[in-house]
Amino acid sequence: MTPNTFPDFRAAHPDCALLVLSDIRSRTVLAADGALAYPQEYLDAISTSAFEIMAQSATRRTWALFLTPNGIRAFRAVPHLGNVALTCLMSPDADVDIMLAQLDTLAQGIEPWEAAA
C-alpha cells in the first residue's frame, strides 16, 4: 500500500466517492481518500458504523452494505488484520457486487505493518 493506493483505487472506480480504512476496535481512522474533504467527525462516524456492523455482533461479519436514497456504504473486513475494515461510499446505482470484490482485492494488499502504523 502506497500513498497513491486509495486515490488510484478511486480513480479506477469512479463510483467510489470516499474510501476509509478504520481500526474498528478503537474506531480510529487509519487512512482515507475522498472526492471531497470530509470532516474528521464524519470519518469517525463511518468508523463507528463499521465497528457496530462488523465487530459488535456475536458473529463477526466480513462484509455489509447500507443503502439510503443518497448512497451506499460498503463495509469490507480486512481478514488477515483482524480489527481493520474498509468502508467505501458509493452512488446508489453502483454495482455493489463488483465493488465488494474490488474492496476484497484491495484489502488483501494491505500489509499488517501498514495498519499498525
Partner: peptide
C-alpha cells in the same frame, strides 16, 4: 446505540451476510 438504527426506521436498507 446502533448508529444506523434511525435510518433503518425510515428509508435505510441493510444487507448482511447470513451467520
Amino acid at each position: 446505540a446502533f448508529s444506523l438504527a434511525g435510518a433503518l426506521e425510515t428509508d435505510g436498507t441493510l444487507v448482511l451476510p447470513r451467520a
